[in-house]
């Protein structure tokens, strides 16, 4: 554990709390992509299969349980509690185009060709691109509620902080995890456009609007 990793995980937690808070206070899931949220459930469930056979630490265990349960809870809120506020006609990105190639890549580029390892690799690749339906939805509407942008910023910062974490671990432990590093850099890169608008406009108190 190092400070980058800890802050990254805390940013990840914060993003989930912001999202749940947004839904409860506005009693709505407007502007949130159900598909992206469903992809996160798939990501966590396929990544944390090791909950059944490997113990890393209490921290690790609690966080994994939290990520699986909170992502399922978010789907429940979107599908049942606030269903009328979700507009599926805006959420049209085809998730097959993400899951298919990620699975194929996981079969080719992995550390060991066994079930749990391929599922772990698949989850890393899928997480990198899971934000696409959400970004695509914002592209279509051209704007986002401020609280939605805070959610996305926290989520992007989480993976961005993992990058110095890997650099730190390389120097202190000699650990290198090329799959996580490449996917993590891609994942962070996808946020660059968003970050630009977020830091130059939203934090200045302006509305998140994409140029027409």
């Amino acid at each position: 554990m190092n400070i980058f990793r800890l802050l990254g995980d805390l940013a990840h937690l914060a993003s989930i709390f912001i999202l749940v808070h947004k839904m409860h206070t506005t009693r709505s899931c407007r502007g949130i992509s159900f598909k992206t949220q469903a992809l996160y459930v798939v990501v966590f469930v396929t990544r944390y299969i090791d909950l059944f056979y490997s113990w890393i630490s209490l921290y690790n265990f609690v966080m994994k349980i939290f990520f699986i349960s909170s992502s399922c809870y978010i789907l429940y809120l979107m599908k049942y509690r606030f269903r009328p506020t979700h507009d599926p006609t805006l959420d049209t990105f085809k998730v097959e185009y993400l899951a298919g190639p990620c699975f194929a890549l996981a079969l080719i580029f992995n550390y060991h060709f066994d079930f749990t390892e391929i599922m772990w690799t698949f989850s890393i690749y899928l997480e990198a691109v899971a934000i696409f339906p959400q970004l695509f939805m914002m592209q279509r509407t051209g704007e986002a509620e401020t609280i939605t942008t805070h959610y996305l910023a926290a989520l992007g910062i989480y993976r961005a902080l993992y990058i110095p974490n890997w650099i730190y671990r390389y120097y202190t432990e000699g650990t290198v995890d090329p799959i996580a590093i490449v996917a993590g850099i891609v994942q962070t890169g996808l946020y660059l456009d968003f970050f630009y608008v977020y830091f130059t406009k939203v934090l200045q108190g302006q509305k998140f609007e994409l140029p027409a």
């Binding site: 490997s54 690790n60 650990t175 290198v176 996580a180």
Partner: peptide, 10 residues
């Protein structure tokens, strides 16, 4: 841990 020794990140 090396990647081969299990994944300790989230």
């Amino acid at each position: 841990a090396k990647p081969s020794e299990g994944h300790d990140e989230l």
